[in-house]
Design a protein around this nucleic acid. Structure first.
Lengths: 350, 350
DNA sequence: CTGAAAGCGCTTACAG
DNA sequence: CTGAAAGCGCTTACAG
């Protein structure tokens, strides 16, 4: 537990000199001999700084908290890479947490709201947080940046161009010749997540552009099990019995949900893409391990995370940051094996 | 930025009284009237504590860091649940991090090694950390608990009973009538991860117990792609050509790897479990979404995390903690659809 | 350009 | 049982 004072005494200098040496201060000049003595003393006592003392003095911690809805959501892995990379560039340490643990009155919330703990917070999905928690953050004036969507008011956010992404997925199916295309997915119950509305509207827009009739969304939670359940009960019966209103293709809001859809199709004996094409939104490693390999739309998740940190650092500095959609990076279609022409076009091929 | 002093002045008491009130001190008694005045003042100024100041004074932070090899590894989700639950009980806030980011000289390592930042660290898999990082931790005397395996020396660890888990998986296959059983998986290149050796030995033990001959391990990394690659090149050709040495069943070290194996078997036209049974080690939601649904062995991951925090809190208090294997909780076989009797026993059924 | 002082906001040991 | 003082380990503004 050597302190700056001990190091200074040992080196025959004063504390501020050691402090300046440690911080690599450019304004304080010291002789080569002084440097050497300080370095030797530092090394000799095995000096380790006390960051609590530094934070108390500077009222900065260089720690940012990152809160995500589900820690093990693979679709977020790339966003986290972007966040960690940017954090390193900006000199931040990242403290990652689960939104489910950040409840009102929780130890973790107390920690974030207190002074001297984190400089700011990045939250993926405001809807994964209690409204009381959001209110606390706002009231406390905590610098927060949301990685959300364009429907979030009252806070600063950065968003993917979800409408464009889903439009791309839908257009791909239209290009293949599909006409009866359904939208399934992630309509979280309460609060009726706005982000899904925007995604659904991307689907609607794509169909209308091409003179096709949009169909009502098929509600589903986001987990694989949710996709399995929704597909089994709401889609599979229509497809299996070749009902006139059966879709020949499906836009699935989330890639995670889509893996459940694939399992359900398999269990129902529905061939993908033979009888039904499936495209998932967002891309993960699991998409290429699924059988059939899942066609997806890849979004700039890395950039979302990276720019999020940059924006937060501005907010921390007290500067005003404008909410924005990442529309300058186009979504990419990752064509794999789960999409193909509709059955009636390929009758001869199979 | 109200301070304790301001609150005290407003309430007409001294700082220590407010401090005691805040901490719910039992030793300091105060009148009902005082309590009310303090509470009112606290509320009026919107007091928020400065945790850096508190840490500087108490040299405790109530923060623990948790370092895992891969943030989005679903097999760890349950362990993290255990950690978060226990952290709450012990009054800790969890700071989760990625081992890949905790490199020598990294901002994050500096942060962990400094005073006044975290009270201790839990590391899943010592082998995911640079040896220099481990040496730094040891030298600095940082309280660390490893969630590793029994082959880790020089540090305190808590381990799953990997040998028992793999023995259960192997016995299941033997019970089904399999004789030619291979072990595939997670032999990390350098350092030749000890934990896989122990798992492999569980496989060997199970076979020997039943008078069967163990076979050399099939090396593979842990990712789905690794499992895919290893299976495609080293196993599939033998099975497809019905070579005499072809396995009829496979113990896959990791469930993540097993999903890749399943995809590879599908692509090679090998029917699971018709021609080959596959059992994965550890259980995840993805195992039940795979087709065929993957038979796995479930280990007490929640308890591993929970007890890890309990052990760390002892270490933080300076008490000696003995490394231990969680042998009191038996592994469970989760029987799904990827295992069945060997082909020659079922010739009439298919 | 260098050196001693003040103070960040708490908690705790100590005197009354 | 209550109240004023000391001090945790830093950094920065200020005097020399």
């Amino acid at each position: 537990m050597a302190t700056l004072r001990e190091v200074a005494d040992k080196a025959g200098v004063t504390m501020p000199v050691v402090s300046a040496y440690l911080r690599g201060s450019k304004t304080v000049r010291m002789s080569e001999d002084t440097r050497r003595r300080v370095a030797a003393a530092l090394d000799e006592v095995g000096y380790v700084p006390n960051l609590a003392a530094r934070s108390l003095r500077t009222s900065r911690t260089n720690v940012i908290a990152v809160v995500v809805p589900k820690l093990d959501n693979p679709a977020l892995a790339e966003m986290l890479r972007g966040i960690y990379d940017a954090a390193q560039e900006f000199g931040y340490v990242v403290m990652l947490g689960d939104a489910a643990r950040l409840t009102s009155g929780s130890q973790m919330l107390e920690h974030l709201l207190a002074h001297g703990t984190v400089d700011g917070v990045i939250v993926r999905r405001s809807s994964s947080l209690d409204t009381r928690v959001l209110a606390d953050m706002a009231e406390r004036g905590l610098p927060v940046l949301f990685l959300d969507d364009e429907s979030l008011h009252d806070f600063t956010w950065l968003a993917l161009d979800d409408a464009a992404g889903i439009r791309l997925a839908t257009s791909h199916l239209i290009d293949l010749g599909h006409v009866q295309i359904d939208f399934l997915g992630g309509l979280d119950p309460i609060p009726a997540a706005e982000f899904t509305r925007i995604r659904y509207e991307g689907y609607v827009a794509a169909l209308k552009e091409r003179g096709l009739a949009p169909r009502p969304p098929i509600m589903s939670g986001q987990a694989p099990e949710d996709g399995y359940e929704a597909f089994s009960t709401l889609v599979a019966p229509r497809v299996a019995h070749r009902r006139k209103d059966a879709p020949t293709a499906l836009v699935v809001n989330n890639v995670t949900t889509a893996t459940g859809v694939l399992a359900a199709a398999y269990d129902a004996g529905i061939s993908v893409p033979g009888e039904l094409s499936v495209v998932g939104y967002l891309d993960t490693a699991a998409a290429s391990m699924a059988r059939p390999r899942l066609t997806t739309v890849r979004m700039p998740m890395y950039e979302l995370g990276h720019r999020g940190v940059a924006a937060l650092s501005e907010i921390v500095k007290g500067e005003h940051v404008r909410s924005a959609v990442l529309a300058d990076i186009a979504p990419t279609l990752i064509r794999r094996d789960s999409t193909g022409p509709p059955a009636d076009h390929t009758a001869g091929q199979k």
